[in-house]
């Protein structure tokens, strides 16, 4: 039998990155500050995790302005959606395998 652990995505090992992806999956876009509040991490920490996701091509950034304040929002990409779905499937397989 194939071990479903192999299908787990290394990038989603981190709870913070998994949290970011979960929030982006059910919202069209989420702002940096909203993510910070949801996940409860510092600016720097969140930014570095977002960078990892961005470099993997799972999220895309949109930089805009509200007045003079920068407003950065994040969206999930098609590749990100697919990767997330595969990761969740693998998790489900693991849970099923345990029973």
């Amino acid at each position: 039998m194939k071990n479903p652990i192999e299908n787990l995505n290394k990038i989603f090992d981190s709870r913070i990155r998994l949290g970011i992806m979960s929030a982006l999956m059910v919202n069209e876009e989420v702002g940096f500050n909203a993510l910070k509040e949801l996940i409860g991490v510092t600016d720097g920490n969140l930014a570095s995790h977002l960078k990892t996701l961005e470099d993997s091509g799972y999220v895309k950034v949109q930089k805009g302005f509200i007045g003079r304040k920068t407003n950065t929002t994040y969206q999930v990409t098609k590749a990100g959606e697919k990767a997330f779905q595969l990761h969740v499937d693998a998790l489900e397989q693991m849970i099923k395998g345990m029973k």
Partner: peptide, 17 residues
């Protein structure tokens, strides 16, 4: 671990939407 991950995902999806 996988159960916790699924729980985290579900919770974050609900909390964010």
């Amino acid at each position: 671990q996988p159960i916790d991950s699924i729980k985290d995902i579900k919770q974050m999806m609900e909390r964010s939407s």
